[in-house]
């Protein structure tokens, strides 16, 4: 009787799996659709964008939209600015976090855990709480419209310190002790011993910093006013504002600008997806 039940369920299971695959493929297509729409819209001509019935495949590929993006806005400049902001933030934030994680994971000093809690508490404070005073500070320092205002206020990330400290804590103290006996200083222990051992975490952290900085909008919007200092997100949003009421004339250019702006993210994401997912799942409870 039990065997019969199992046999019936094996056939059932095959059917269920087939249905499951079909459902999953459909859902994936729906989720991918806006990206598809972005891609094909970036390749349509202005006339095709303004047809009464939208086309699902470009009549002809209007590659010139991409060149046009460079003419309508200083696209190369925006791209470069975004890259400098992202790379600068990665370098600063990672080094500050590496040092702090070393101090909080392996250092011996009074008040260590209390200070670490103070760092962690920063996770609760949203960006909006600090932006007015920081704006005033930046303006007093004359840093508005410079990369300093875009990078320096993000020097310390509680999240990065937290994750790196986790991974340093799992490294055995004997290894550090042996290096110390050999006369290694703190910097060489940190950068030549701990960093290579925690490399997967450090690289994942760098990628996450890259993505969040590349996509950031609120901060660069407030800290920059000069057109030459804009980053991609702000530049693209402004492009839309500048043609308000006339959007349909320019949306193919906006779409082309957007496609070029997400290429670095999609590349990085594709390569690093596994590590990113692992880091996400790790940071929830512990």
């Amino acid at each position: 009787m039990r065997d019969n039940y199992m046999a019936g369920s094996a056939a059932n299971r095959k059917l269920l799996m087939a249905l499951r695959i079909i459902a999953a493929v459909l859902v994936t297509l729906v989720m991918f659709f806006p990206v598809y729409w972005l891609l094909i819209s970036s390749l349509k001509t202005q006339a095709e964008m303004r047809m009464a019935v939208p086309t699902f495949w470009p009549q002809s590929f209007a590659w010139e939209n991409f060149a046009e993006a460079f003419r309508v806005i200083p696209y190369a400049r925006y791209f470069g600015n975004t890259l400098i902001m992202a790379v600068g933030t990665i370098i600063l934030q990672l080094n500050v976090a590496l040092m702090a994680a070393y101090a909080f994971a392996k250092g011996q000093f009074r008040g260590r855990d209390a200070l670490f809690l103070l760092v962690l508490a920063a996770l609760i404070v949203p960006e909006q709480v600090t932006f007015v005073p920081v704006y005033v500070m930046m303006s007093k320092l004359g840093w508005l419209d410079t990369f300093l205002a875009l990078i320096v206020p993000h020097g310390a990330s509680a999240y990065a310190i937290f994750l790196l400290r986790q991974s340093f804590k799992s490294i055995n103290n004997d290894v550090l002790e042996a290096a110390r006996v050999d006369g290694a200083g703190r910097f060489s222990i940190l950068y030549k011993l701990l960093l290579p051992m925690a490399l997967p975490t450090v690289v994942t952290m760098g990628v996450l910093i890259f993505i969040s900085t590349w996509n950031s909008y609120f901060w660069p919007l407030i800290m920059t006013n000069d057109n030459d200092m804009r980053v991609l997100t702000v530049g693209i949003a402004m492009l839309r504002d500048s043609i308000a009421g006339n959007e349909a004339m320019f949306f193919h250019i906006i779409m082309a600008s957007s496609v070029m702006a997400i290429i670095p993210i999609v590349l990085v994401f594709t390569v690093m997806q596994k590590h990113i997912v692992a880091a996400m799942a790790n940071s929830t409870f512990k």
């Binding site: 500050v96 702090a100 250092g107 103070l118 320096v152 310390a156 310190i161 703190r186």
Partner: peptide, 18 residues
């Protein structure tokens, strides 16, 4: 101990200031 502490100073300064 002070040297250990010193490594947390950059993070603390950034957090304090910003």
């Amino acid at each position: 101990k002070w040297k250990d502490f010193a490594f947390s100073v950059p993070a603390l300064v950034f957090m304090g200031a910003f």
